[in-house]
Design a protein around this nucleic acid. Structure first.
Lengths: 108, 108
DNA sequence: CTCTAATGTAAGTCTTCAGTTACCGTAAGT
DNA sequence: ACTTACGGTAACTGAAGACTTACATTAGAG
């Protein structure tokens, strides 16, 4: 699994509520750090640190624009997460159906 | 978004490595608590607490079988997560493309 | 060259939360 | 009824990490 590790890291990163908030804002539109921090209840350095985690997880990337760093969604990480979930979704659904059938069969 | 809140909770739940491990085993086959704990490096009560979180997130459900509680994947929660990720996947990709285009346009 | 704006980094604090042990309830077997 | 197996709950501990306040760095304006 090539993207397996990336998906794991992405899931771990999105486990934090603040990082989810940052991520959702970046889904709407790419933004610099200051703008993100202005709309969140945490300080700007906190946002910087969260962005670092999101970047290490392959969920966002940055492009320098002068003194600003514009952060935007990285399709790679999101895609890896989607693939991971897709695989587990189908397999899990099959197992669930098998289990439900077996249970129904054992009931008179 | 009807399942939005559920998807958010599911993401938060899967942020923990041990919960992911439990979830992945339940994808393979439904299991009672003791069996899960036996294959994990944590105690049985720890597994119980994790299962509670997973249940509150709509990712697993339980069915009583005598003294045992068989835990299995809950397709609702997994589906909600998939939908959420799908939406963000498409929207985020559009925003990314728009951004990339605008950036390319501003370069001579 | 200096000043300001925008951001990353370091060090420290404080909260959160995963994990443990101990205890209690419940269900089936003998 | 007694016992054994299974699992949830409570209270506590410890470590991971989220957040803050400095300080350092880089880029453009004047």
């Amino acid at each position: 699994m090539t993207h397996g590790n990336l998906a794991i890291k992405a899931l771990g990163a999105l486990g934090d509520p603040t990082r989810r908030a940052i991520f959702e804002r970046l889904v709407e539109r790419p933004s610099p750090v200051g703008e993100l921090a202005a709309g969140l209840p945490v300080s700007r350095p906190a946002v910087s640190q969260h962005l670092r985690v999101l970047k290490d997880s392959g969920l966002v990337t940055e492009t320098a624009a002068g003194a600003r760093r514009i952060y935007h969604i990285d399709p790679r990480g999101v895609g890896a997460m989607r693939d991971w979930l897709d695989a587990h979704w189908t397999v899990g659904l099959d197992a669930f159906k098998a289990f439900a059938d077996a249970e129904a069969g054992s009931l008179p």
